[in-house]
Amino acid sequence: MLPTPSTSHVCFDRVYEPAEDSFLLLDTISAPSEAAFLHDRFEHPPHHGPCSTPPLVLEVGVGSGVVLAFVAANAGKIFGREDVLTLGVDINSFACDAASKTVQNAIKTGSRSTFLDIVNGDLASSIRPHSIDVFIFNPPYVPAELPDFSRHNDYNAPRPGQKPTSFEQDSYLLELSYAGGVDGMEVTNRMLEQIPDILDPSRGVAYLLLCAQNKPEAVKQDIRNWGHGWKAETVGTSGKQAGWEKLQIVRIWRSTA
């Protein structure tokens, strides 16, 4: 098993603490079957064709940064190449700072991958079209009312002259990390709309975490209905309850074969 990056510097009062969902992503992406898929797609030099360029990994909603740091630190084992680029986005500026440190610490020793930045943003709205090779999203998936975004500007940074954060501010910032609206799918549905636009059309692949209340079978069917060879399959599961997987990782990719 590959080591989990340290997040001991992160204040979990206002940044999502790594939990079962984060660990399911780590386990799935580094599992032998998934690593084989990713090696085949990205290995350098690949089995066929000319040398390929470094893959760009984007994680939206990095939180503590544990998943992106894991990918950055273990790029060689996961992708079969070290020259991997990592980039993150979070809507919470405290998470941006935290995740940036987590990734930098994780690659200090022994990794040759290249960390770009964590930017403060809404989903992948600021990403240049078709530039992402590997996309990772652990969404706010809990069926709960979305937070009131009108407070975002006030709550997204420490306010000058005041205590660093208030209880209300911290609660708001944590809500952003878990509350997903109706069926826990409101944020994920907005993200799914962007996926075909940000992924590289030939080698792009996305990993999406879903919980049982998100109606994963229907989500996967919707993706297949995009046409143009889009595929969606469950590649990792955890927490079986009465025959239902509590959490699962769906791989989304295009296959022209």
């Binding site: 930045d117 930017v119 403060n120 809404d122 009108s150």
Partner: peptide
């Protein structure tokens, strides 16, 4: 114009 503060770019848009 998107602001960069302490090395972090903010791409959040006003409503």
């Amino acid at each position: 114009e998107y602001k960069v503060l302490e090395g972090v770019a903010n791409f959040l848009l006003p409503a």
